[in-house]
Design a protein around this nucleic acid. Structure first.
Lengths: 162, 162
DNA sequence: TTTAGTGCAAAACCTTTGCACCCAG
DNA sequence: CTGGGTGCAAAGGTTTTGCACTAAA
């Protein structure tokens, strides 16, 4: 936790864990390999940006499963460290495959206009975090950081035409 | 937005705007001075940490008003720049009086055990934000940053006694 | 066989909204 | 008097949960 967040060599995090690798991680922690679970992981695997549970549900298509199952699995997968949860402040949690070490995480730049998401490889300076922890006697300190702005396409449009 | 966030001289943000000052700001933007509104502002004024609408509602006591009124007022006050909204990732928005300039904001260190909140005066390095904006062609870039950890009292307790 | 996982339905939350009424300006 | 603000009730959206049933190990 004291060391800086690892910066990936991959600018757009196309690390691409295979479904097999993910399935193995399930096995390793003795969780069952079920249809819905495989389908969920496969959806996450093909998306470069965090998805809401509703979006995941929609992306399942033929492999449809219950929304509650998705919610429950996201909890499980998060606890297992396979998935990371992000929060863009619009009442819906978003999930993304956790690439790299379990301590790795990254941040996002979200367009306030069109919701476009840019993955940010850089991270909040870890020394500041460590100093913060020390100063207030906190341990196990982590952070949540997201950026918001207007993307090139949205910055022009001033108002919705009335 | 390019300049670093102002650091306050007040470590614990005891700037203490008077109810009169706040009321004046309402008048300045020609909004009505109503009972509920005064009461809400007074509650926020006496609390050093962000509150959920439910907490505000509870803190109103005798000056009770409808929850919907609180929600509506928080929207209004936020739009007026009197109040800032914070998000700790537990599905409930939190509000705090906006002290200082309208561009000023700060961050929090939240205990995962007891929900204790520590106000952080430091801020995310603005140069990084500016560079980020430039690199991706975004404008109007802001950020949301909160810290989570275990406070001194909670770090000891390992498990709830079964 | 055993028990984690699933589907379905209901409920729990937080938040927003429609509508009639009230009151600050 | 007029329009913003309020109360009340209902609805919307996300997330959780109880329970019976299914299927992975």
């Amino acid at each position: 936790m004291n060391k800086p967040c690892a910066h990936h060599a991959h600018p757009h995090r196309l690390v691409q864990q295979s479904l097999g690798e993910l399935t193995q991680k399930l096995r390793d922690q003795s969780r069952k390999i079920t249809g819905p679970r495989q389908a969920l992981l496969d959806v996450l695997r093909r998306h470069a940006h965090p998805l809401t549970n509703k979006e995941i549900h929609a992306a399942l298509g033929k492999a449809d499963c219950d929304l509650a199952t998705i919610y429950r699995n996201m909890h499980t997968l998060q606890a297992m460290g396979l998935v990371k949860r992000y929060d863009f402040g619009d009442g819906a949690a978003r999930f993304e495959l956790a690439e790299g070490g379990s301590d790795h995480h990254h941040h996002h730049l979200v367009c306030r206009g069109c919701q476009t998401i840019v993955e940010i490889e850089g991270c909040f300076p870890a020394e500041l975090e460590a100093e913060l922890a020390r100063r207030h006697g906190f341990s196990e300190v982590s952070h949540r950081l997201e950026f918001f702005g207007l993307c090139p396409r949205c910055r022009i449009v001033p108002e919705p035409t009335p």
